Simulated scan of single mutants.
Amino acid sequence: MAPRKEQQIFRATLELLAGKGYEGLTVEGVAERSGVNKTTIYRWWPSKAALLAAALVEADLLAMEPPDTGSLRTDLEALVQGMAALLTRPPAADVAVAALGAAVHRPELAAAARRFFADRFAREEVVFDRARRRGELPATADPMLIMDLLAGAVWLRTVFRGLPLDDDFAAKAVSAVLDGPS
């Protein structure tokens, strides 16, 4: 499938998820919104869950490139700011909340959520590799734990508590993780 058409399908999938939830997401709706035949969608993805799983990982809407600022601290701050933008700006924020909610009750979507987070961590790992080479991070440091702490802070503050993030939230969160609470 042509990459542009694939992205149209993924965008339609995520927009319908954000607007109608998982129950309201249908392959027919995605086909109509993206301008392709539903048989084309089924040729590439055997189910609604498979389509959503692919969209979560591969959609440009949720794309993230790891920063390379030359410093672990500012790379992590940029990652936190990117997560915060993802969780506070529509339609990505609505997609994230709807996908999380749907994954709670559906094992196939829980697997897709795990794939999404594994993909994100694989992309972020380069930040830690560079930091180790620069001598900013000991070999014993656990990059996944660092990212879990930072991402957890963003998710908890924005999604579960519904609180805004101050302009200096990223710097404070990274400082708390790297330096300890002050």
Rank of each mutant, 00 (worst) to 15 (best):
A173L: 05
D60N: 00
S47P: 11
R133I: 15
F116V: 06
L100M: 07
V177D: 03
P164K: 07
G162I: 09
G82D: 08
A18P: 03
R114K: 13
D166T: 12
D75R: 00
F116P: 07
R73H: 06
P91A: 00
R133N: 15
P66W: 01
A112E: 11
P46A: 08
A139G: 13
A110N: 13
A99R: 03
D75Y: 00
P181M: 08
P138W: 11
V126D: 12
A98H: 01
V177F: 06
L156G: 04
T158Y: 02
A63R: 03
A98R: 02
K38Q: 14
L52N: 02
D166Q: 13
R161D: 10
P107D: 15
V174D: 11
A2H: 13
A93L: 08
G70K: 12
S182C: 06
G152E: 05
M1R: 03
I9D: 09
G101V: 01
L14W: 03
D94M: 00
M144E: 12
M64H: 10
A99Q: 01
E77S: 01
A151R: 11
R11G: 09
S47L: 12
A63W: 01
G162W: 08
N37I: 11
L72E: 07
V80R: 00
F169L: 06
R132N: 15
A151V: 06
I41V: 15
E136A: 10
T140L: 08
E6A: 14
L76Q: 02
V27R: 14
A78Y: 00
D148M: 10
D166M: 06
A103W: 00
T40D: 07
K20A: 15
R89P: 00
V80M: 00
A78F: 01
A102L: 07
F121A: 14
R157Q: 08
L56V: 04
A31S: 14
K48M: 15
P164D: 12
I146Y: 06
F169D: 03
S175Y: 04
M64F: 14
A96K: 04
L178I: 08
P3R: 10
E136G: 13
A141N: 11
Y22W: 14
A49Q: 15
L14T: 01
A12P: 06
A176H: 05
E15H: 15
V80D: 00
F116W: 14
A151Q: 10
L56K: 04
A50C: 09
D142Y: 13
L62C: 03
E125D: 15
K5F: 04
L62R: 01
R4T: 10
E58Y: 03
A84H: 01
F128A: 14
I9M: 13
M64I: 09
P90I: 02
D179V: 04
V174E: 12
V127Y: 10
L156F: 07
V154K: 03
A176N: 06
Q81L: 02
I146K: 05
K5T: 15
K172L: 02
L86K: 03
A113N: 09
S71N: 07
V127I: 14
V27N: 15
